[in-house]
Amino acid sequence: MTEPAHRLTTTELDRGILLVAVSGALDAATHRPVVSELDAVFEAHPSGVVLDLGAVEFMGSVGIAMLVNSHHRANRLRIPFAIVVNSRAVLRPLQISQVDAALPLHPSVDAAVAALRLVST
């Protein structure tokens, strides 16, 4: 049996902030479980959502679209949202597609949580 192309976990942090951590590839073949998990997370109306892509090894165009759509959805629902990006494998595709400036990117989970706390105060 082959190992899945990614792993996905959701953890509740302090003050109701949910951390969704993804590892492996994020592309057309692997994005559906991540989208489903984010749908469930947003439907719960948490006080904030951090999407941790620190362990993502490949980001395809479908992954980029998913990030943009998630950011827009969070804004519509008024849920503070932050994305952890600390690898070239994720940051470079975002820069090339010129969406890096439009997304709430942070270098670490701690920085992302701190940013969400500022927004919610």
Rank of each mutant, 00 (worst) to 15 (best):
D14A: 14
F58P: 01
L13D: 06
L8W: 01
V22D: 05
V99L: 08
L18K: 10
D39C: 05
A44D: 12
S61L: 13
G24Y: 03
A40K: 10
N75H: 14
R88K: 10
L67A: 12
P46N: 06
D52L: 02
L8T: 02
V85N: 02
G54M: 08
V109Y: 00
A74L: 04
N86Q: 15
E57I: 05
V22P: 06
L26D: 01
A21Q: 07
D100H: 13
E12L: 14
D100Y: 08
L19Q: 10
P104Q: 09
D110P: 05
A65L: 10
V62Q: 10
V113L: 01
I17C: 02
L77D: 07
A55Q: 11
T10V: 12
V85E: 03
A44I: 06
L51I: 12
T11Q: 13
H106R: 09
G60A: 13
S87M: 06
A115P: 06
A101C: 02
I83V: 15
L26F: 03
N69S: 15
E43I: 11
V84D: 00
S87W: 03
E57S: 13
D110G: 14
V49H: 09
H71Y: 11
A55D: 10
D27Y: 02
P33R: 07
A74S: 11
L18D: 02
L53S: 05
A114L: 11
E37A: 12
L26R: 00
H106I: 05
L103A: 04
H106D: 01
A114E: 15
E57L: 11
L105P: 01
R73S: 09
L94R: 07
R92I: 03
M59Q: 00
G24A: 05
A65N: 15
R73W: 06
A115W: 05
P104F: 06
R32N: 09
S70R: 10
A74P: 03
V41A: 12
V56H: 07
D27F: 05
V41N: 10
A102F: 12
V99H: 07
S108H: 06
D52G: 02
A82F: 10
R76W: 09
G63E: 09
S47T: 15
S47Y: 10
V22Y: 06
D27M: 04
L67R: 09
I64A: 03
R76N: 11
V50E: 00
H106A: 04
V68T: 11
G54K: 08
P107Y: 13
H106L: 04
L67Q: 08
G54S: 15
D27H: 04
A74H: 04
L103H: 05
A102M: 11
F42P: 11
I79H: 06
A101L: 09
E43W: 10
G54I: 05
V85T: 09
R92C: 00
R15Q: 15
L103R: 06
S47L: 11
V49D: 06
R15A: 15
V41K: 07
E43L: 15
P107T: 12
E37Y: 00
G24M: 04
R78M: 06
V41E: 11
N69T: 13
T10D: 00
A101S: 11
A112M: 08
Q98I: 08
R92P: 00
L67M: 15
I64C: 02
A102I: 12
V35G: 02
